[in-house]
Amino acid sequence: MTHNLILRVVSKSLIPLIIVFALYVQFHGDFGPGGGFQAGVILSAAIILYALVFGLDAAEQIIPSGILRILAGLGVLIYAGTGIVTLFSGGNYLDYSGLVGSQIAGQHLGILLVELGVGITVFSVMLIIFFAFAGRGRP
């Protein structure tokens, strides 16, 4: 699809918007609808759109699959690590109340970290799956 001018121009202006929206969904998930799951999917959709329009190789240059694999593990680690940190700060596993200062601030930080871990994992796993499917078709 590399020759299609309209697609290239439109997607070039659309992809930054999609990424910004994904970040908004990620960090505004506490107040409105959204959260890590949705943000990860939207962010990966932006990259998938890029891969569809500009070709798979260009997309893999932005995010090499090695980095994606590390990111997928990193997301789970952030999540589980938050739980470990709460253990050290005197609470139960994944009980964020004692993370910082007051209970509400601790809960807020904990939820933010956990959602970040979810978002990173979902984003990278969706891209891993897509690249696996798309890369299979190459000769």
């Binding site: 506490d30 107040f31 609808p33 959260g35 209970q103 809960q107 939820i111």
Partner: peptide, 15 residues
């Protein structure tokens, strides 16, 4: 009151 997060779904999901 306990988590300071208005979106209940997020609060239940993550906390």
């Amino acid at each position: 009151p306990e988590t300071g997060v208005p979106n209940i779904v997020t609060a239940v999901l993550a906390s």
